[in-house]
Write a protein that binds this DNA or RNA. Structure first.
Length: 566
RNA sequence: CGGGGCGUAGCGCAGCCUGGUUAGCGCGCCUGCCUUGGGAGCAGGAGGUCGCAGGUUCGAAUCCUGCCGCCCCGACCA
């Protein structure tokens, strides 16, 4: 490709709309152009990078036995009503009516459509297993789109759906996708981890997320330093240690704590540590108030609570709502004489002589003990794992890292096939629901994540497999026929040798060409300029490690080949 | 949804508080000269419904009202 003929509008300055580095670089390098909030045009160079990812995904999906198809983006609401998600999905599902007043929506995902196909076309165990996938634009009306392609409203996704005769067979399909995903992200040249995850709105029993490690991930993941356990923090199980034995239970006392409402101020006032205090948080779960007891220095993990309660929406109550629900102003809540449904983190019953709110303004209770002074029947793991907790799998130390979710695989089971009547006949003539799995990859997000993970002050450092062009040739002698001819010859040779080659043949000064080459992230840069005149050599520079070498034209092809080989 | 901020040339911004000629600056763009291994220099030039609509005023980018768009933050707390 010739720079003189392609639209790659690079920018020196950082547009003020971009917060994270991948977004800034994608704008500066002319990958994308925003049309409106969360919706972008993919310009030629950005699209080329997306195609790289798509091709890898496609090859590996096909290799894993999946078949490509393409489903409609506009979907009838009836289908979503059948699965029950028309009500459940929330405002992320963009709904509208067509000219005949038919309710419709834009597909944020395609379980309904694929299940509709399955029930119409898969009637026999002989038809199974089947795995169908597509690579397609999705629309989700995100509350707050941000970070460019990282969380857009419109984005490119590969989604696959498997259908099997039973759980065991579905397990095999799931495993195939698990392996395929590992191959895909390895081939992309990305540093990633596969973690246990929450299955969220899609539903289902079990899921893994594929996370690209980067400093600005939207998720935090916990990783064991010893074994191979890893989990999304939302889901990461806290392993309990019993610490209760042998401590004397003191007599409960009521203390006045005027104006002390926050954990920190109560602790300072009473001269205790936050690990001796238990806070009582009030949340609204699908509108119903729920109180949760948690050690003072712990964080509530809302996803765990949400899953425990089986609700779709959860949020902290505001002060007024707290008072309405409990009759107590926030800051003085406790378990004794609580009027609200009360849950406790598993850690709380193991604590001794704890301090809690007295359910009375300006008073707390000290030396309160579970079993003696109060009971809670609903006890579970509600808190967030910390870096100081042991690995729930092997008990060794863990660390927390940031990750960008680029892939997610789910075992769906039969929830969709049952609600939508997708049954097949088994060998014995019995009707049985199809057992499903679904598997997503955020294709456009992979590009963003790759840049987030691979960049420096000068711009993008593309992993070779994702680079739109592996090598760029800088013609620094546009007005020098000898140099230009050499640059063109090299460009032709490399193309012929099968490299995706770019040539900067613009009438620009050298500095601009160097800067743009760095910004655009070509893995290799060949400079044809004065050194060619002097010594008949050109310079080849590796973007990744910054090494440069002078080399004769005839050695270029073999040199690049060997570089790319490792 | 709540809170905050911003909308002035392709990009980044100033001007607004305290209304008053042709609305500025840097980058980019066009023309010419010059320069040619890390975003050069000189000279000339093009490009603006100052987000939209209404209002106040002799006069509005500037003050007021409404609308639209964009960006950021948000439930560490009981």
């Amino acid at each position: 490709m010739r720079y003189s003929q392609v639209l790659i509008p690079t920018m020196k300055e950082v547009p003020s709309e971009a917060e994270v580095i991948s977004h800034q670089l994608m704008l500066r390098a002319g990958f994308i152009k925003k049309l409106t909030s969360g919706i972008y045009t993919y310009l030629p160079y950005g699209l080329a990078a997306i195609r790289r990812v798509e091709n890898i995904v496609r090859e590996e999906m096909n290799r894993a036995g999946a078949q490509e198809l393409s489903m409609p983006m506009v979907q009838p609401a009836d289908l979503w009503k059948e699965s029950g998600r028309y009500e459940k999905y929330g405002p992320e599902l963009l709904r509208f009516k067509d000219r005949h007043e038919r309710e419709s929506c834009l597909g944020p995902t395609h379980e309904e459509v694929i299940t509709d196909i399955a029930r119409k076309e898969m009637h026999s165990y002989r038809d199974l297993p089947v795995n169908l996938y597509q690579i397609q634009t999705k629309f989700r009306d995100e509350i707050r789109p941000r970070f460019g392609l990282m969380r857009g409203r419109e984005f490119i996704m590969k989604d696959a759906y498997s259908f099997d005769v039973d759980d065991e067979a579905a397990e095999v399909s799931y495993r195939k996708m698990y392996d395929a995903y590992n191959r895909i992200f390895e081939r992309c040249g990305l540093e990633f981890r596969c973690v246990e995850a929450d299955s969220g709105a899609i539903g289902g029993s079990f899921s893994h997320e594929f996370m690209v490690l980067a400093d600005t991930g939207e998720d935090t993941i916990a990783v064991c330093n010893e074994c191979n356990w890893a989990a999304n923090l939302e889901k990461a199980e806290v392993k309990m240690s019993d610490r209760r034995a042998g401590v004397e239970q003191r007599e409960m006392v009521k203390v006045e704590t005027p104006g002390k409402r926050k954990v920190q101020s109560v602790c300072e006032f009473l001269g205790i540590g936050p690990d001796q205090l238990v806070k009582t948080l009030v949340l609204l779960a699908d509108g119903e108030p729920v109180a949760v007891m948690l050690r003072g220095d712990r964080e509530l993990e809302e996803v765990k609570l949400k899953n425990y309660l089986g609700v779709t929406d959860i949020r902290p109550a505001e002060d007024k709502e707290i008072f309405d629900a409990t009759g107590v102003p926030s800051g003085y809540l406790g378990p004794i004489n609580s009027k609200t449904r009360l849950l406790a983190d598993q850690e709380v019953p193991a604590m001794v002589n704890l301090t809690v709110g007295a359910n009375e303004k300006n008073y707390h209770l000290q030396n309160v003990n579970f079993g003696r002074d109060f009971e809670v029947t609903e006890v579970a793991d509600f808190r967030q794992l910390t870096k100081d907790d042991p690995c729930p799998s092997c008990g060794e130390s863990i660390r927390l890292v940031e990750g960008i979710e680029v892939g997610h695989i789910f075992k769906l089971g039969t929830s969709y096939s049952e609600s939508m009547n997708a049954y097949y006949q088994d060998r014995d003539g019995n009707e049985r629901p199809l057992v499903m799995g679904c598997y997503g990859i955020g294709v456009s997000r992979v590009v963003a994540a790759a840049i987030e993970q691979n960049h420096d002050d000068n711009g993008i450092i593309f992993p070779v497999p994702l680079a739109p062009y592996q090598v760029t040739v800088l013609n620094l002698g546009l007005n020098d026929p000898e140099v230009s001819a050499a640059a063109e010859r090299i460009y032709g040779q490399l193309n012929e040798a099968g490299f995706d080659t770019f040539i900067d043949d613009r009438d620009e000064r050298p500095g601009i060409k160097f800067k743009d080459a760095d910004l655009l992230g070509f893995p290799f840069r060949i400079t044809v300029g004065k050194r060619f005149k002097e010594k008949a050599m050109v310079e080849i520079r590796c973007r990744q490690d910054g090494t440069t070498e002078d080399i004769g034209i005839d050695d270029l092809v073999s040199h690049i080949s060997s570089k790319l080989a490792n």
